[in-house]
Design a protein around this nucleic acid. Structure first.
Lengths: 210, 210
DNA sequence: CAGTAAACTTACTGAACGGTAAGGTATCGA
DNA sequence: TCGATACCTTACCGTTCAGTAAGTTTACTG
């Protein structure tokens, strides 16, 4: 069995086990056994437990970002449609590869500096992607004319954070409402966020004192 | 030193250590030492590592839910003001007790059935609280008259999930933008969500095909 | 003062786990 | 046929860590 194939097999299993047990509770012995291989092979190919986890992280992060970017790129020029396509791709990805998402994001207290850095990088990449689309959307709606409220890059960043967090949480909601398709969830979320943003840009502010 | 005081001291330290290291990487030895006590005391009072973690979970969950409920209750009758107050209390809580929130929510792959159940219970409680306020808000705006779109309990649940997820993620945003007060974050979030919801209730739908 | 219960310690055990040393087999080019 | 290189194994080491046994001190009470 050639090395490249074996490596992918090991990573396949590792993503599953890390997602199920978490980094610390996962044991290399178990991963090796489930991969139908002995432990030293894992160390020969992936160097260490941390290296194995980083390999999982890198592969799944690349997959997710690629899915998002391709969807957004292939959705024409309108920012709302691009954001919609990106979010739809995200939900579809999470629905299809639940373990990947868990490994990427739910790895709470990071076990090492390098892993923490890798997770932060992924998060930053996703966030920048979303914030970019939101910013385009703001500029598109504002279109130079002075609308009610001015929203800038900082606001786009704020919305992006809210959006990504909402999407993550809605992952659970999808699991508990199995009738809902990723597509319908996406449209619902767009309705909340996009309509709200458009409203704010039109000057429809909400304030605690009326 | 009486038992009740010691127990709280131990839990204080444990919340810190669990938040920093995660459940598995945290060692009872370290917690005991930081609490200025020997390990068997921890086992005498809290039974086991799992028992210790459950005690942390229960105490911090009660604090958070209480803060949310009290704020909402003390904010008058208008649903938007109650939701605003609840969210403000949440952001203030997370800002003040960061470790509590990490222990409550970021404990990714749950180490045991009982802990998973406790985390799920907390999450359900918070979600029900938020969904209730959102539902009140929908009914308040709709007010019996037939507005553009009908939103029901399922929609309130959807919005609640999105809102809680957004709030969680905005926790990070707050950390990266230290100039922002919990109060300003709350108002911004309310503007996104409430204005969007009101817009949808007024029939302003967003659809992928124009 | 005797007794007893609560608060607290040192010192240990057994198991799990990350990582490695040493070596075995098979395939392929010279 | 003779390396040599890639693939793979068994068997082990050292450490960490949850959990416990046994005993000590302090303080209160009859």
């Amino acid at each position: 069995m050639p090395r490249q194939v074996r490596e992918q097999q090991i990573i396949d299993v590792a993503v599953r086990v890390f997602a199920q047990r978490g980094y610390h509770a996962a044991s290399v012995d178990e991963i090796a056994e489930l991969a139908g291989i002995s432990k030293p092979m894992v160390y020969l190919y992936l160097d260490s437990k941390e290296g194995l986890f980083l390999a999982c992280l890198r592969r799944e992060a690349a997959r997710l970002v690629a899915a998002f970017q391709e969807a957004a790129r292939g959705a024409g020029a309108a920012p709302d449609l691009r954001l919609h396509a990106g979010l739809a791709a995200f939900f579809a990805f999470v629905a299809a590869y639940r373990d990947s998402w868990v490994v990427l994001h739910r790895q709470a207290s990071e076990p090492s500096e390098r892993i923490a850095a890798a997770v932060a990088d992924t998060r930053r990449a996703v966030m920048a992607e979303v914030a970019g689309l939101v910013k385009d959307g703001i500029d598109d709606v504002t279109g130079g004319e002075g609308r009610g409220a001015r929203l800038g890059a900082e606001d786009a960043d704020f919305v992006a954070h809210a959006l990504v967090g909402a999407a993550d949480s809605l992952t659970d909601w999808m699991e508990r409402n199995p009738g809902q398709s990723p597509e319908s969830v996406t449209v619902r979320l767009m309705n909340m966020v996009w309509v709200g943003m458009r409203g704010v840009l039109d000057g429809e502010v909400w304030l605690p004192d009326g």
